[in-house]
């Protein structure tokens, strides 16, 4: 679960690096759920300076390479102007039930936020 947007807080970076290490160790990631300002990780309109990491495309690549399900909370997204039309590849918008379902299905749930 990622609760902060990119760049302002380290949460998204920590979550991404943790997710990568999880996959490298041979574990599976059931889902990454983006909540609160974390929904801002999903906008394809993000354009960081060239010498900086691109937090958004990094998530998209994780989805593409490993089939990780990236879910953005619909209510949190609508509050913050994140819609299907500005969603980066690999992300999908769905309900909070997806978070609870992950808690039920996965062996562990780790929260990254502020």
């Amino acid at each position: 679960m990622v609760n902060e947007g990119p760049y302002t807080h380290q949460a998204s970076d920590s979550a991404y690096l943790f997710a990568k290490a999880t996959l490298e160790k041979g574990h599976q990631i059931h889902r990454v759920f983006f909540y609160h300002d974390g929904v801002n990780n999903a906008t394809r309109l993000t354009e960081p300076p060239q010498d900086d990491r691109n937090v958004v495309t990094r998530w998209s690549k994780l989805a593409e390479d490993h089939g990780v399900d990236l879910v953005v909370c619909v209510a949190a997204a609508m509050r913050r102007g994140i819609r299907d039309e500005n969603l980066a590849p690999g992300f999908r918008i769905s309900g909070l039930g997806q978070l609870v379902e992950s808690g039920i299905q996965a062996d562990r749930l780790v929260v990254f936020g502020d």
Partner: peptide, 11 residues
């Protein structure tokens, strides 16, 4: 711990 060690702790 590195990120891998972080994963191990969670496990």
């Amino acid at each position: 711990v590195d990120y891998g060690g972080f994963v191990d702790l969670v496990v």
